[in-house]
């Protein structure tokens, strides 16, 4: 086929959250410089990371829904989104899918701005949010250049939450149940690599369900782990910001 002529760009973003998040991220990129964060990862322990092979991503959003189900997230909160982009001019068209999770940055801008220390870089590399401590100020949402964070306004899919929405579920090392005003409502929420599953030796829900088997997860401290091997030759989103993401991408590099 001829070389692709790119005349216009079109972003089809799979959720409102994705739209807002990315817009916020663009703004931050221009206005916010990243300083070093004290919370360096303890390299003696496990340090989790994820590799997403874009050549195997088919944009199906199985990851998005596996995550919703696992973390019982309410409407408009998606820890994982897939950004779809179609560009070019007929017949030289190009379509790409970019799944976006939390990058679990080694130098996370979100941690620094949290006034109450609710969001932390854990030793295992995961950036966590303590819902009981979070005061819902949402500074972290504007600090995140990836639009990975969103606020739980306490909405449910139904006026009267359905049986599943109202049932107990786990995030981090705690059990939650959606009820009026209770955490994680009124907290900021985001992907945590399904840390409650990882603690039990399971893979994040998105990795388990992935239709294209595009996702790899594991210990980046182990040079022989699949994820370490796959991470070679990978790239990260907005690497110029110095956030040092622990989510890596394989495949043709996209504009970020």
């Amino acid at each position: 086929m001829e070389e692709k002529k790119i005349t216009r760009k079109k972003f089809v973003i799979t959720s409102l959250l994705g739209t807002l998040g990315l817009v916020a991220g663009e703004l931050i990129r221009q206005s916010h410089s990243i300083d070093n964060i004290e919370n360096e990862v303890d390299t003696e322990n496990k340090k989790y990371g994820m590799v997403i092979d874009l050549d195997r991503c088919i944009g199906c959003n199985a990851c998005t829904i596996a995550c919703k189900q696992e973390n019982n997230t309410p409407p408009n909160i998606h820890y994982n989104v897939v950004i779809e982009k179609e560009e070019g001019e007929f017949p030289n068209v190009y379509n790409s899918f970019l799944p976006r999770v939390c990058m679990q940055c080694d130098k996370p801008p979100c941690v620094k701005v949290c006034p109450v220390g609710a969001t932390k870089k854990q030793k295992n590399g995961i950036v966590s949010i303590d819902y009981e401590t979070c005061i819902g100020c949402r500074y972290c949402m504007t600090a995140c250049p990836y639009g990975a964070r969103s606020f739980d306004f306490g909405e449910n899919y139904y006026d009267q939450p359905n049986t599943f929405e109202a049932s107990p579920y786990q995030e981090y090392d705690k059990i939650y149940q959606r009820g009026k005003g209770k955490a994680p409502q009124n907290s900021v929420r985001k992907c945590h690599f399904c840390s409650h599953r990882v603690d039990k030796g399971e893979l994040p829900a998105c990795v388990t369900a992935c239709l294209g088997k595009a996702r790899f997860f594991g210990d980046l401290n182990d040079p022989n782990s699949e994820v370490s091997i796959k991470a070679k030759g990978s790239w990260t989103l907005k690497s110029n910001l110095g956030t040092k993401p622990r989510t890596f991408y394989l495949g043709e590099k996209r504009d970020d």
Partner: peptide, 10 residues
Amino acid sequence: GAAMCPKGLS
């Protein structure tokens, strides 16, 4: 592992 699509997961 195996796989499931977004419909199945819903």
